[in-house]
Nucleic acid binder design. Structure first.
Lengths: 113, 113
DNA sequence: GCATTAAATAAGCAATTAGTTATATACTTA
DNA sequence: TAAGTATATAACTAATTGCTTATTTAATGC
């Protein structure tokens, strides 16, 4: 028997994931930590726009931040209560690894510490 | 290996499900066909509000309608391309059967044809 | 045909959203 | 310490959302 998730909280999480930019971000973060400037490069939107999306995801605890020198790296928070729920969605989405590969290819991938 | 779903379409579906009213509707419809007036009773909002939520769900093909006399019954469209995706979310939500039971108890459940 | 019931659509409104530009904060490095 | 880079926050704006009330459409039953 599968554990269930509070319906109102589920709606809140789904609403957060119901945006192409955030859904892609979370899918990427599920396999690669990233910093803000990498997302700016990937999504071709302004830096504040990226920061605001990340803040929403962080506010509900789906992601975490860690400063590494000049950069702040974001990662999936696997300890979050809703991580299994999120994961069950993510595993049905196609890999977004090519976006990370594109950064590496163009030399804008940040490798740090 | 699990089949994957286009990320942009997934975001669209998740956005639809990212509303408490619609998510509850879909969870209920997954096990019970319902008509508009039953949802009005369950959610205690205006009839047009319910109709508008149902239309959004129908517009992406997640649900279907069928007129039965005076009433229009809605049901989950299991043939929809995204049904397996939706189902994987729904199965993690607690049953909403008590809402149907409440209708039955108060005599407002519509049994038709 | 006329009154009643069910549902859809139209129009309007307040709140929310996702973006922008401008500015502030924080760290790095010369 | 000053300049440069990365990120967050503030303020603004246009578009979207979810609701409402009013009206229209459709079926039922006298």
């Amino acid at each position: 028997m599968q554990a269930t998730v509070d319906l109102n909280k589920a709606a809140l999480v789904l609403k957060l994931l119901g945006d192409t930019t955030r859904l892609t971000m979370v899918k990427i973060l599920d396999t690669h930590d990233c910093c803000v400037c990498e997302f700016v490069e990937i999504f071709k939107v302004s830096q504040p726009s990226i920061s605001q999306h990340l803040r929403k995801l962080r506010d509900v605890g789906l992601i975490e931040e860690e400063r590494k020198g000049q950069w702040i790296f974001y990662s999936i928070n696997k300890a979050n209560e809703y991580y299994p729920f999120v994961e069950s969605v993510l595993k049905q989405l196609p890999s977004q690894d090519e976006k990370i590969q594109a950064l590496t290819d163009e030399g804008t991938r940040i490798i740090c510490c």
